[in-house]
């Protein structure tokens, strides 16, 4: 008998079983692909880290100092990006985080100069950062403004305020915080403790409380979220407030690292934060696929990449081109499992 005849002679239940098996196999493949894609950011970070370690060893570089640099480079970006995850997961966007960080650091620094109190510096940084962050969302909520545009405007305003603070209260185009206030904290241990502590807190809030679930729901489907009774405005304001904590901690970490603050302090953090989130696998549209640890992963990936490139490449523009290409490639790889049918907007 030919194969066709064999198949045709199969009973309906058998054909059904084969079809079910095929469907199950396809689903299994898709699941495996999805799982592989899920771990791409982690894999990328690990690969970059390994590459750096191997190449640095080959070149005979001091890895202890190298890792100190990596942690120090990643700290500011990771803190801001971790806080920003609350904003992005709820479907909002904020470009003013870098400028906010600078203003918070400047005000905290000025308080430090005046009072000499470390506690007051930390408190000021946190209060100013949270206030400015909440201001964005309150203005946007109160006046029905698009949050995104609001944050762009506020980015310019905060930048101008920072310059005004420096020209009014600074000397020689800078605000010099006395290093004696913060020197005791200027070490890798403090930075690791700050990072891990904040990350654990944010992960707890995001994964184990109603807050995180509500944010993902709001980011995923604002209409359904509204219909289920989630107050989008209140939740957005809370998200911005939580992001403000990350910004406040980052501004304090910046003062600890480099106590003399100028207009260019932390200038690249705003954009590097976005890149870090994307490198770490964060979905920029928010929703259920948001990941709190994406920020840390991304920040360290970038820090490993910078350090790796520094071994062989001088001239920051080559590094920039490589970063740009890698950035797009990593995001593309990550999005393979979830390609939209229509173009994203």
């Amino acid at each position: 008998m030919s194969e066709e005849k064999v198949i045709n002679t199969l009973s309906a239940p058998d054909a059904e079983a084969i079809a079910e098996k095929e469907t199950a196999a396809r689903m299994k493949k898709a699941l495996i692909a999805q799982n592989i894609v899920k771990y791409i950011p982690l894999g990328a970070c690990a690969v970059l880290g390994l590459l750096y370690v191997i190449c640095a060893l080959i070149e005979g570089y001091d890895l202890a100092i190298g890792f100190k640099v990596i942690i120090s480079n990643a700290t500011l970006v990771a803190l801001v990006a971790t806080g920003a995850t609350f904003i992005f997961s709820a479907g909002s966007f904020d470009l003013s985080l870098g400028s906010n960080m600078l203003v918070s650091a400047l005000v905290g620094g000025l308080v430090g100069i005046k009072t000499g109190s470390l506690f007051l510096v930390i408190l000021t940084c946190l209060v100013v950062a949270i206030s400015l962050s909440v201001l964005n969302s309150v203005l946007a909520s109160l006046f029905n403004l698009p949050v995104f545009i609001m944050t762009i405007v506020m980015m310019n305003v905060y930048g101008a305020i920072a310059t005004l603070l420096i020209t009014t209260f600074g000397t020689n185009a800078a605000v010099p915080v006395p290093p004696s206030i913060v020197n005791s904290l200027n070490n890798t241990g403090f930075r690791i403790a700050l990072l891990v502590g904040f990350e654990v807190l944010c992960c707890f809030l995001f994964y184990f409380t109603k807050l995180g679930r509500k944010q993902k729901f709001l980011g995923g489907n604002p209409l359904c979220a509204d219909l289920t009774g989630i107050n989008a405005k209140k939740l957005t304001i809370l998200s911005f407030a939580l992001a403000g904590i990350g910004i406040g901690l980052a501004s304090f970490a910046m003062i600890v690292q480099t106590p003399t603050l100028s207009a260019s302090s932390g200038s690249s953090v705003g954009m590097n934060m976005l890149i870090a989130l994307v490198f770490g696998g964060m979905n920029m549209n928010g929703g259920p696929r948001s990941k709190m640890y994406a920020a840390m992963l991304g920040a360290f990936s970038m820090a490993f990449l910078d350090s790796f490139m520094n071994i062989y490449v001088t001239g920051s523009w080559y590094l920039q081109i490589v970063k740009g290409i890698l950035f797009v490639v990593v995001v593309f790889l990550f999005s393979i499992a979830n390609r939209p049918k229509m173009l994203e907007r």
């Binding site: 976005l274 920029m284 081109i321 740009g324 950035f327 593309f332 939209p340 907007r345």
Partner: peptide
């Protein structure tokens, strides 16, 4: 690539500036 325009824009900014 069907990525968000912001991502493409950021990547191209880095590349073009370089």
């Amino acid at each position: 690539l069907r990525l968000p325009p912001m991502i493409i824009g950021l990547g191209m900014t880095l590349v073009l500036e370089g």
